[in-house]
Design a binder for these strands. Structure first.
Length: 505
RNA sequence: UCCUCGAUAGCUCAGCUGGUUAGAGCACAUGACUGUUAAUCAUGGGGUCCCUGGUUCGAGCCCAGGUCGGGGAGCCA
């Protein structure tokens, strides 16, 4: 038995494959099956004259997602998925499926999420998971090749790390325990033991967020480096993101193609990232400062106009197709075709309306943004849309950042934190910075943030025994996957997403 | 918690200012078609119009309350 992935090495040979019937079409004497085996998809052609009546009838009536083994000749055919097809000589049904819910028709999100366990089999979802896998591998390759040691932080914690977000509370032998929202503080302890470390584990946030950027459970990678300052931290972030993205670009071309990912923005990671201080970023967001000859307000107005044009074009196309159907000159098949196009276009109209609403909000937040505040999702989008490549924003007002961020000695009131914003509206992918080393300042910050001192005694110990400058960052895996794959929603980036209101399947 | 949009067949949707027996396509079943890639033809089965209450001679449509879901704000990776 071989796998679809290996077909190219078996051209002209007769091979055996085991897998599933992803989809099929039939006509007299021929069945065309899109066959999948987990490693890929390919067309299998079943010819009555070759396989005989019994096998042919079995294939013809085989429901979608039934499992089977096929034996056949590998024939090169550029038109096919993967460039090869199998001309089947014999087949054996392993298990006939009952009626499969996911049909080759458009489906709504809720329905697909209810069927996530099956949806994962679709080509698009398959491709996303392949890319996710390559990203994970690339992350390990990057850190391991630089001598980082993977050390994982605990998932049960006794304290709320940053104090702000809502955590999931569990019962830990009668004591309250929280599911970790960050391994950050433990990372610092581990870096003092091993020098360069990274954690790779699940993270939990009990936010009742319903947006395309949030999950209740997601995977985070948090490196922590002894003797690194903010500059070194930023250099590492840039090398790291470039390394991961280019590996996917180089090795997952087929998957990105299946996702219809336009890769020009991704290619930009090969160039140096934009770096700017918070104050400059604010000036750009508020439209006080031009980038490439235009302000944010001009860019947003252009964006608005684009949507108006798009809406008009879509409405016109719907009207045209409706007129065609009404004319009564079309054959039934053509009417169906036009009708399904109209359905699709109408779905696009609702999408355009949503985007128009979003742009309005961005304009509002650009106009009303107050210096000193943290960025909202819209502000991040505006900023990155101005550049079309990753942007690192550093030196944030201390008030909006976590208590452990170090203050810049030459830039009082600003914390040496950095956020990496992905282009195309994907927002904050990495957040990090240099850690506060002054124990007295840490203590007063803990009090200021109204955090329980007793829970941080061990953390303060790190400053008593061989205190060193150190930095780190956190990367949200799913946001990175969403950006690289060009997905509308983060829920497609993880096999079984956990979000507000979704615990099954 | 707030703003906003929505719920009609297994799925995606249409359903006019409230009016007879609620529609289409896909999917499914049966038959016809020798190369298809969501576009062939014919026939067929398939509905608690989200729930509760109200207005009305009459409610899928109007009103009130709820449930669930989409998008966003807040918060964040």
């Amino acid at each position: 038995m071989i796998y679809i992935k290996q077909l190219a090495q078996h051209e002209g040979q007769t091979v055996q494959l085991s897998g599933w019937n992803a989809q099929k079409r039939d006509s007299k004497g021929l069945v065309f099956m899109t066959f999948r085996d987990g490693t890929g998809f390919c067309q299998a052609v079943i010819d009555l004259n070759v396989v005989g009546e019994e096998s042919f009838e079995a294939a013809k009536r085989l429901p979608q997602e039934s499992s089977l083994s096929i034996t056949g000749k590998v024939v090169k055919d550029e038109r096919q998925i993967g460039g090869f097809e199998i001309q089947v000589t014999s087949l054996q049904v392993i298990a006939e499926a009952t009626e499969y819910p996911i049909t080759p028709k458009e489906h709504g999100v809720d329905f697909l999420m209810d069927n996530r366990h099956l949806w994962l089999r679709s080509r698009r979802q398959w491709a996303i998971m392949r890319v996710r896998n390559r990203i994970i591998f690339a992350i390990h390759e990057f850190f391991q090749s630089r001598g980082f040691v993977q050390m994982d932080a605990p998932i049960f914690t006794g304290n709320a790390c940053e104090g702000t977000t809502n955590l999931f509370e569990t019962d830990y032998y009668g004591e309250p325990a929280y599911l970790s929202q960050s391994g950050q503080l433990y990372g610092e302890a581990m870096a003092m033991a091993q020098g360069l470390i990274y954690t790779f584990g699940p993270t939990f946030r009990a936010e009742k967020s319903k947006t395309r950027r949030h999950l209740s459970e997601f995977w985070m990678i948090e490196p922590e480096m002894a003797f690194y300052d903010l500059k070194m931290d930023m250099d590492l972030i840039e090398d790291f993101v470039r390394s991961v993205v280019t590996k996917v670009l180089d090795e997952c071309a087929d998957e990105l193609k299946a996702l219809e990912r336009e890769t020009s923005y991704l290619e930009k990671v090969r160039e140096p990232f934009i770096r700017m201080k918070y104050e400059d970023a604010v000036s750009i967001i508020k439209g006080e400062k031009e980038v490439n000859g235009r302000t944010s307000l001009v860019m947003l107005a252009e964006e608005q106009q684009k949507l108006v044009d798009e809406k008009l074009a879509t409405e016109n196309e719907i009207a045209e197709r409706e007129a065609k159907i009404k004319s009564g000159e079309l054959k039934k098949g053509e009417i169906n075709f036009n009708q399904s196009k109209i359905d699709k276009l109408k779905a696009q109209l609702t999408d355009i309306a949503e985007r128009q609403q979003a742009v309005e909000q961005w304009i509002h937040s650009a106009n009303t943004f107050e210096r000193g505040n943290d960025f909202g999702g819209g502000d991040e989008t505006v900023l990155t849309k101005m550049f079309g490549q990753p942007v690192m924003v550093y030196n944030w007002p201390q008030a909006v950042k976590a208590f452990y961020m170090k203050e810049d000695e030459t830039d009082k009131g600003y914390a040496k934190g950095v956020d990496l914003l992905a282009p195309e509206g994907y927002g904050e992918v990495v957040g990090g910075g240099e850690r506060e080393t002054d124990i007295e300042r840490l203590k007063s910050k803990i009090i200021e943030h109204e955090l329980p001192m007793s829970a941080f005694e061990w953390y303060l110990d790190l400053r008593k025994f061989g205190n060193v400058p150190h930095s780190g960052f956190g990367l949200g895996l799913e946001r990175l996957v969403a950006w690289i794959c060009g997905l509308q929603h983060i829920r497609e980036t993880i096999p079984f997403p956990r979000s507000y209101g979704r615990l099954l399947p």
